[in-house]
C-alpha cells in the first residue's frame, strides 16, 4: 500500500514533463544503457577468452584417442574414458533421482501445502537455505551416509546421491517458479469445469511447467556435472581407474577430478590433455543445454 502512494507523486511528475525529458536526464538514460551493455559485454568477453584459451590449449589432443584411452601416467597415452563414462553414469542417475523428487516437492509446496502451517513454512525456509550450503558439506554427508553407513562405497550411486542432495533444492526452486508462472485463471478454470485437484495438476499444471522446469533442472544438472569437491570427499577422488562403470555400484570417478589431476601434474603435456578434457566436459554441458532448449521450445506456450 505504501509503495503505491509513494509512486503517485512520481507519476504525476512524469505527466507534467511529458513534453520532452531534460537533456541531462536523457544523457543519464544513455549512460545507464551503456553501463548495462558494458556489463553484458564483460561477461561475454570473459567467456570468449576462456573458451578460446581452452580450445587453443586442448585442440591438439581433442580426438578419439582421448575418449578411447584410459587414464595413464604417460602423457602421450593419457585419456579420460573412465572419467567420462563415470560422469555420464552419474549425471543420468542424478537426473533420475532429482527430477521426480524435485517436481513432486514443488507441486506439493505450490498446489497442496497450506502455507499457514508452521511445518510447511519450515520446509520452505529449509529448501532456500539448503540451496546455499557449500558443496563440500554435502561431500562429508555423502562419505558418512552413502559411502560408509549405507555401504555403497565410492560408487556411482554414492556420487549421484551426494550430488542429488546438492542440486535438489535448485530443482525444487526452479520448478516452483515454473508452476507459479502459470496464471491462476488456468487453475481456476480447470477446477471450475469440475476437474479434481489431481486432474488439474496432471493436465494443466505439469504440462505447462515443463519448459521452466526443464531449463532450471538442466542448470542444476550442469552444476552437478562440474563439481569436484564433494566427490573428492565422498568417493576419495579416484585418479586412476581403468574400468568403466557397469552398474550403480561400480567404483567411479568423474571428469572434473580427472581434469584437476591432469592440470596439477608437472609435465606440460598433461595440461593439454586436461584442456581437451575440459572441452569434452563443455561438450556434454552443451548437449544438455541444447536438450533443455529443445524441450522448452516444444512445450512453451504464450498466455
Amino acid at each position: 500500500m505504501t509503495a503505491q502512494t509513494g509512486l503517485q507523486p512520481d507519476l504525476r511528475g512524469a505527466d507534467r514533463g511529458l513534453g520532452r525529458a531534460r537533456g541531462s536526464e536523457r544523457a543519464a538514460g544513455r549512460l545507464f544503457q551503456g553501463l548495462l551493455m558494458g556489463c553484458l559485454a564483460f561477461g561475454v568477453l570473459v567467456l570468449v577468452v576462456l573458451l578460446t584459451d581452452v580450445i587453443r590449449d586442448g585442440l591438439p589432443r581433442f580426438n578419439l584417442d582421448l575418449v578411447r584411452n584410459m587414464p595413464s601416467g604417460r602423457p602421450a597415452r593419457a585419456g579420460i574414458q573412465s572419467a567420462m563414462m563415470g560422469t555420464i553414469w552419474v549425471i543420468v542417475t542424478v537426473a533420475v533421482i532429482t527430477l521426480p523428487l524435485g517436481v513432486a516437492a514443488a507441486v506439493y509446496l505450490e498446489e497442496y501445502a497450506d502455507k499457514t502451517r508452521w511445518y510447511n513454512r519450515a520446509i520452505e525456509l529449509n529448501i532456500q537455505n539448503l540451496a546455499a550450503v557449500p558443496s563440500v558439506v554435502y561431500g562429508i554427508l555423502g562419505l558418512a551416509f552413502f559411502n560408509r553407513a549405507a555401504g555403497f562405497g565410492g560408487s556411482v550411486l554414492t556420487i549421484a546421491l551426494t550430488l542429488s542432495l546438492l542440486v535438489l533444492p535448485i530443482v525444487i526452486i526452479s520448478c516452483r517458479e515454473a508452476i507459479r508462472a502459470i496464471p491462476t485463471s488456468i487453475r481456476d478454470g480447470s477446477l471450475a469445469l469440475g476437474a479434481t485437484r489431481l486432474q488439474t495438476v496432471r493436465r494443466q499444471i505439469l504440462p505447462n511447467a515443463i519448459p521452466g522446469t526443464a531449463t532450471g533442472s538442466i542448470l542444476a544438472l550442469s552444476r552437478a556435472i562440474g563439481e569436484a569437491a564433494p566427490i573428492l570427499i565422498a568417493a576419495s577422488g579416484i585418479i586412476f581407474l581403468t574400468r568403466n562403470p557397469t552398474d550403480l555400484l561400480s567404483q567411479a570417478t568423474v571428469l572434473p577430478i580427472q581434469i584437476f589431476n591432469y592440470v596439477s601434474r608437472p609435465q606440460e603435456e598433461f595440461r593439454v590433455v586436461a584442456a581437451a578434457g575440459i572441452m569434452v566436459l563443455l561438450l556434454i554441458l552443451l548437449l544438455m543445454n541444447a536438450t533443455a532448449i529443445l524441450i522448452r521450445n516444444k512445450y512453451q506456450r504464450k498466455w
Binding site: P71, S72, S236, G237, I238, F240, L241, Q251, N261
Partner: peptide
Amino acid sequence: EAAAEGFQEEHKDVNVVVGT
C-alpha cells in the same frame, strides 16, 4: 598410478584403483 598401469599391462584381470 605408474605401478598400477604397468602391472595391469601384465595382469589384465586385476583392477588397480588409485585415489587421492
